[in-house]
């Protein structure tokens, strides 16, 4: 397991380096002089030259990349041109908001989705199964930004159950502000996960080892919750791990609709102003998040499934 974990994280690091390099080159390939856009038309040539030198934009691209990685090793993502603050500090200030939103979304949707799916699979073709199926389909069909807008209008503006905007203060304040965005992002996942778990469960429940467990009189609840679910859940873990990218993009919508601080808002704002160091920093963190979450998914699967440990 330890060997597996080491290797898996080595791979994750490699993926991260490739992804960040590609991203770096892509951003530099966007047409237009970034310095002019950042400083505006009335900036003096001296100021422009200083910024160009500061960002190392006058260097060949490979050297820019080396400088970027060199700084990165020291945790230095550069200085924000506008505020003069360290980009690392700005990004890490926003990161917790996004992380909280994503984890809250995954947590409630995975728990509900797995429960719903497992229950439906254990009682196939009953009324509850049908209701769950109908709900799942409508949940899947609901895009996060539509749910975000509607829930904002209904629960925040009209019913005033939850606050409409911002991130809140203190534990309960933050919790309150998290409910609606997490609901909006998670809703389509509930349906998706429920359907996935149901299909996967039905398949596993038909396998012969389940019949064996029953042939020994093991209680049906244990058969479903341990003997079957532990296998049926494997594809769900992978899907959530890989779905992290998708979750991040939903988080961008939710952060904009609910005017929440977070990486999503930061990226959108800095792209429109061509604030390179901030874009690069946010992209780096998002990519890191994605790579780490897929690696985590693989590790969880390896922990759940001994066959995966030896296979890799």
């Amino acid at each position: 397991m330890l060997l597996y974990a080491t290797r898996r994280f080595g791979l994750a690091l490699l993926i991260l380096i490739v992804a960040v390099t590609v991203m770096f080159l892509m951003i530099r390939a966007v047409p237009g002089d970034p310095v002019q856009i950042m400083l505006g038309p009335r900036a003096t040539p001296e100021l422009q030259a200083r910024l160009t030198a500061e960002l190392a934009l006058d260097q060949p691209i490979w050297k820019q990349l080396l400088i970027f990685y060199g700084n990165l090793m020291q945790g230095d993502l550069g200085i924000d041109v506008f505020s003069g603050r360290s980009v690392t500090a700005i990004v890490f200030e926003q990161l917790p908001h996004t992380l909280a939103l994503i984890f809250a979304s995954i947590l409630w949707s995975a728990l509900l989705g797995i429960g719903l799916g497992a229950y439906a699979a254990a009682h196939p073709n009953t009324l509850i199964d049908r209701i769950a199926a109908a709900l799942s389909v409508s949940f899947v069909a609901a895009p996060a930004f539509v749910v975000a807008l509607l829930s904002l209008l209904i629960f925040a503006v009209h019913l005033q159950w939850f606050p409409a905007i911002g991130a809140g203060e203190g534990f309960w304040g933050r919790f309150d502000h998290l409910v609606l965005p997490a609901f909006a992002i998670g809703l389509s996942w509930v349906g998706y996960i429920a359907r996935l778990v149901r299909a996967s469960m039905l398949e596993v429940m038909g396998e012969s080892h389940i019949r064996t467990a029953r042939a020994f009189g093991i209680h049906e609840r244990r058969v479903v919750m341990v003997y079957a679910l532990r296998i049926a859940i494997l594809p769900v873990v992978t899907v959530i791990g890989v779905g992290m990218g998708f979750l991040l993009s939903s988080a961008v919508f939710a952060e904009i609709v609910f005017a929440r601080p977070g990486l999503g808002k930061l990226v959108i704002d800095s792209i429109t102003t061509r604030n390179y160091p901030i874009v690069m920093g946010s992209v780096l963190i998002s990519t890191g998040l994605f790579v780490v979450s897929t690696a985590m998914a693989d590790l969880i699967n390896a922990w759940l499934d001994p066959r995966a440990r030896t296979a890799a």
């Binding site: 080892h209 064996t212 467990a213 009189g217 093991i218 759940l304 066959r307």
Partner: peptide
Amino acid sequence: GADISIVFQDPMQTHNPV
């Protein structure tokens, strides 16, 4: 599994893999 026990046909599929 108490009074009546069964050994099923396919040994490769008969145990829980995880």
